[in-house]
Structures are given as C-alpha cells and as structure tokens.
Design a protein around this nucleic acid. Structure first.
Lengths: 205, 205
DNA sequence: GGACGTGACTTAACAACGTTTACTGATGGT
DNA sequence: ACCATCAGTAAACGTTGTTAAGTCACGTCC
C-alpha cells in the first residue's frame, strides 16, 4: 500500500482527506492535487504513501466498508425477525443517503482493484447476519417454514441497494430530476416498509 | 444541442460513435478525442454540434432511454399478470447485462444535465405500463384486491435495478470480485423468479 | 471576374489532471 | 568531516476537456 513505510499518521490523514473530499465533491470530483492541498503537502508526497490514485481509493473504500458494516450491526436492536430486517434495510438506506459520495464509490464505481480480506469478511458477516435473522424467524414461526435464507437475504440486499441507488441517482419512481432529499427519504422509507410487509406476507403460510 | 445546425448526418455519427465507445470502454473510457478519431474528424468538430461533453452524453443517454423502453415493451407477450411482470423484469436485467456501459451511464452516473421530454415520457410510459399490468392482475383476481399499483410498480423497478446494478458492479451476494458473467446471469434470473413468486404470494389473499 | 462573406473544419494552445524524474535539505552514524 | 538515508518538493510529461484563431472552399454581389 505504501511505497515507503514512513509516517503512519500522514498516511491516515491522506485517507481521511480523500474521504471528506469524496463526500464534498463526489468520487469524480476527487483529485490528487486537492488531497495534497488539504493535507498541506505537495501532490508527489501522496505517492510516497500510495502507489497511485486507485490504491488510495482502494484503501478509502475498504475503511468505508468497515464503517458501513459497523453501522448496520449497531442498529439491530432486537424485536421480531421482520422488524430486525426492516431496521437493517432502513439503516442501509440511511447510511447511503447520508454518505452519497462514498456509497457511489463503494457500490457503483467501475471495477476497482482489490477489496481487502477484512472488507470481504465484513461484507460476508453482514450478509451472514441477515441470513441468521431469517433463519431464527423461520425457527420461531415468524417466517414460513422451508424458506431459503440465502435467497431471502439476497433479496433484501438487492432491494436495499436498488432503493438507495435509485434515490441517489435522482431517477426514482418515473420522476427524473433531483427531487427534494427529504421527500426522497420519506418515500424510500415508505417503500421499504411496503417491501418488508411484502416479505413478511410472502414468508407466512 | 448543436452550436450550429449544420450536418445532421454527422451529428448522428457522433452520437453513435460515443455510444459504441461507451460500450467498449465504459463511460469513464470515453474521450472526445476517441470520438473524433472514430468519426474521422478533429476533436474540435464535435463542438460544432454539441456544446460540450456533457451535452453529448445527454443526447446519447436520451437515445438509450428510448431504446431501453422499446426493448421492455417488445418483450411483453402476454400471459398472466405475474408472468408479464416476470418477463419485464427479465428483459430489464438482460438489457442491462448486455449493455453494461450504457446502463451505468443511464442509471449510475452522477447527475447529468437534462433528460429530454421524450425520454421522460418514455420512462413514465414504461412505469405506467407496469402499473397497468398490475391493475389488470388485480381486476382478474391474479393479484390481491386493493393492492397499491404505484407502490408495487416501484417495488419491481427497484428490484430490477438493484439486481442489475449489483450484478454489473461485480459486488453481488457477498462475493466481491468479478464473477463469471454466465453465472451472474443465471443467478440473477433465479433471483428474479424468487422475487416474482414472492410478489405473487404477497398479492394473494 | 475579382472581392467578399459565410460555413465547415483544423491547428495550436490553454489549464487541469495523474504520474515520474530528478532534485533539495535535514538528520545521524562513523 | 564525510556521506548515506530519508521526507518532501519542483519541474516536467503525456493526456484530458475546451477555446481562440486560423484555413480553405464555395456562393454571391458589383
């Protein structure tokens, strides 16, 4: 990751500067020179710590994956299986709406280089937790017997991503253009609830 | 759209060159100089027909929206409501998988300038047709009485987009990295079918 | 039929970008 | 006193989107 080991604090500052710029100006608005300005060094210094722009983005994205997974985990406060799934989907959507630049970089940017083993593990863990919630719901009778938890978990993640992605793109619900964020937010929450009701109904006998 | 009216055939060639380059190299791989090379003119000539790169992309995207809507319309060959919804979702996914560069430009690129009135109309028409299918399904008893067709149509579009977007990003189903396209294709189709079954069950009494 | 305007197109240049090469100092061991 | 090492920089290269200034053919007027 670093061409020379050097100053760890500076490497960290670079990643944080990149992350804040991505949020301020979107992934396409990030330049090496802007990052350099923000940390108060010349652009070439960044290349002492990261091979190139892509590997800096890799590191930034990997941290964001961990942060995102923590956010999803922290929100699962119990309740019925369907309620926990609903909480998870809301948390997913809200994180995306609050971190649109980073969300787009994480899930919509063309093929990046490598995703770290840690980030892969975190993502699998989030998905695995969703499966566990579903399986426990099946056990306690909230959800229909014999439900395939892998497919159900995929469905939830697909739904949450589809909703978040369309909301962020401003191309939602047959109404192109950037809508009022508060309206998009409320509308998306309503749709998640409808989705959750649908899942719940589907999994009942 | 055009700085000078000039040669209509050339304007069309420029858009087609841009579209094919987007498919070959992705939206981020498109440059004005590449477009110029492909049509056999100098880069500045493009600026006689389009104000800048963004307005060229706007025009390209607008045409793609029409093409996409035509594709969705052509596939709806009848059958029950649930079968037509399934056909529509498959058609959506397949178009995205076959035109990944254009799909990403249409639905995931940062806020573009203006979407033409025609494209807005086409998108509303596609969504409206989905609603009609649902309403007819409710009428003939295939789908549950009192179902909100607007929410149901949104759900289908969100699901289809979420699936397509995740499949294209190579970040699907907790398995990062670019998967075998054929596998992704098959897996996505299976998931659409599961979604359709879920909707069907949900909308039944 | 020569002057001239117009219209289509190009050449050359600009600033900003990612990145590389070659450098400048400061530090510290021998 | 020397000199190697290390952190950081200045200057440059090639590429990008875009603009300003030009070239050149063609139709029209006197």
């Amino acid at each position: 990751m670093a061409a020379r080991p050097a100053n760890l604090r500076l490497a960290n500052d670079i990643v944080e500067a990149a992350a804040s710029l991505i949020e301020e100006r979107g992934p396409e608005g990030l330049t090496m020179r802007l990052v350099a300005d923000r940390i108060g060094y010349s652009p070439t210094t960044i290349y002492l710590y990261f091979k190139n722009k892509e590997s800096l983005l890799d590191e930034t994205v990997n941290r964001a994956y961990d942060w995102f997974a923590d956010h999803l985990e922290r929100v699962q406060t119990g309740g019925s299986a369907i309620e926990r799934l609903r909480q998870g989907a809301h948390a997913y959507l809200d994180w995306g709406l609050e971190n649109p630049g980073m969300y787009r970089l994480m899930f919509e940017w063309g093929y990046l280089g490598d995703i770290s083993e840690d980030a892969i593990f975190a993502r699998r863990a989030s998905w695995r937790r969703t499966r566990n919630v579903i399986e426990r719901g099946v056990e306690d009778g909230t959800l229909r017997e014999g439900l395939d938890s892998a497919t159900a978990a995929d469905t939830i993640w697909v739904g949450a991503h589809g909703l978040t992605s369309l909301a962020l793109s401003g191309r939602m619900f047959g109404n192109p253009g950037v809508a009022n964020p508060a309206v998009v937010h409320a509308r998306s929450h309503a749709l998640i609830d409808a989705l959750a009701d649908s899942w719940e109904a589907a999994w009942r006998a």
